[in-house]
Amino acid sequence: MSEKKLHDDQKYIDGLAENNTFIIKAIYEKFAPKIINYIKQNSGDAYDAQDVIQETIITIYNQAKQNKLQLTCPFDAYFFLLCKRKWLNQLKKSNRKEVTIDDDVLYKDDDAQVLSFETSIFEHKQALFDEVFLQLGDACKDLLKATFKIKSMEDVAKSLNITYAYARKKKSLCIGQLTKLVQASPKFNRLNY
């Protein structure tokens, strides 16, 4: 993927990561109408579209912030596929009416398929990561929060009144515990590891 040329639309990804109001507004103006139409034609309304679009944008933001998103296709195709997949999943869950239109033919762009799929996986991962974090004991939670907030492990150790060596070891083991919880989850197999 790294050899492929970045698409000019990477500006939307970077703009989201920077919380650039101008870019976010542009995304709504340019790309939302098509998604609203699609959802309205498939058992939804504008409120559903509003939620789907907002959640999708937050996922893209999270992925972009972790520097894990390099757009090699038009944003339009990528974004549409993501919103569409999210909406279809919701319909499936709520057992609403059958979907009538399948627009996949619109986007033969392989990169858009691959990238939007990766973002969906990213979203599943993040949801599961958040879920398992809540299962940790308080000692691990506090240590991890301090670790990632304070940065310097020396200061973390000082703030928790433990030794530097112990703080480091404990951090590794806490994330190790999360790793095991992730692997043991029934949702693990859809994360594509």
Partner: peptide, 9 residues
Amino acid sequence: LNSNLEHQI
């Protein structure tokens, strides 16, 4: 996990 924690926190 490490990257996600770093980002969220």
